[in-house]
Design a protein around this nucleic acid. Structure first.
Length: 268
DNA sequence: AACAGAGGCAACCGCCGCCAG
DNA sequence: ACTGGCGGCGGTTGCCTCTGT
């Protein structure tokens, strides 16, 4: 249990991914798809375990990632979804196109929780701190609500409506800046983007279409926050070719900053 | 300028569920 | 029915950067 067999078979590298490793993984998946993750490291020439490759791809190399600061709408949405789904980050991520469960989880733990407490809201129960009269949003409650609604074609709209969530949303004016700054010098920052995949990279793991869950927020989500956010794809455009361009360039041309990474590695 | 503490974030660990043999 | 392999998930860790002194 735990560690997969592939991790025992060969000596696998750990720690931050180098640009070369990213390049190899992107190249392999772009050309062949990931298929069986456990075989990806070998086929791609990586000394990593399959799980590590999968994680790296899903969280950083996937071309449809948005990255950058969470918009107010996204943060509010995360809070609302967390009130209903709890720590089911993958399901929450499924409602936020371009966001990963890891990113949302990190944001929740480092940023959003703090903000909720500052507002006098318990991030676990989503109720005012010290207010014990209100029914608590527990996993049991959520499960019950979800189960009840799943009877009718697995819709979650009612559980969402069952909880009064207006109190949980942030006002845009007083939010402390919660930034995910793209640091170009950081060694492990992936440089991949704009790669068209054969394999699916859509958010299809959700339990129902986003439009069914909160149809009117869908538009807001795509409009909000874009202007101030440094979009991952935009950042990467400078160092990584667009899909059309990538087909005519060698992969080695698509990555920059190798020197910085080597320097970093040497320092260690 | 140097240091210490806090915060952010990438990656790993361990567990679970599914599925094929 | 059982077992092992694998994908997926959530929790946690540890490194790096930032910020305050």
């Amino acid at each position: 249990m735990g560690r997969h067999s592939c991790c025992y078979k060969q000596k696998v590298r750990k720690g931050l991914w180098s640009p070369e490793e990213d390049e190899k993984l992107v190249k392999h998946i772009t050309e062949h798809g990931h298929g069986c993750w456990s075989s990806v490291p070998k086929q791609a020439g990586l000394q990593r375990c399959g799980k590590s490759c999968r994680l790296r791809w899903i969280n950083y190399l996937r071309p449809d990632l948005k990255r950058g600061t969470f918009s107010d709408q996204e943060e509010s949405l995360i809070i609302e979804l967390h009130a209903v789904l709890g720590n089911r980050w993958s399901q929450i991520a499924a409602r936020l196109p371009g966001r990963t469960d890891n990113e949302i989880k990190n944001s929740w733990n480092s940023c959003i929780k703090k903000k909720l407490r500052q507002r006098g809201i318990d991030p676990n129960s989503h109720q005012p701190l010290g207010d014990l009269k209100m029914p608590t949003v527990t996993p049991e409650n959520v499960n019950r609500a979800v189960a009840e609604n799943s009877m009718a074609s697995t819709r979650l709209s009612d559980p969402m409506a069952a909880f009064s969530l207006a109190q949980l949303t942030f006002r845009p004016d007083d939010r402390p800046h919660c930034s995910t700054v793209i640091d170009r010098s950081r060694s492990s920052m992936s440089k991949a983007n704009g790669v068209e995949l054969q394999s699916s990279c859509s958010f299809d793991g959700g339990i129902l279409p986003w439009s069914e869950l909160a149809p009117d927020m869908d538009a807001q989500l795509h409009l909000g926050g874009e202007s101030e956010d440094l979009k991952w794809s935009e950042y990467l455009l400078g160092v990584f070719p667009t899909p059309s361009a990538s087909q005519t360039q060698t992969q080695s041309q698509q990555f920059t900053g190798l020197g910085a990474w080597h320097q970093n590695q040497n320092q260690q």
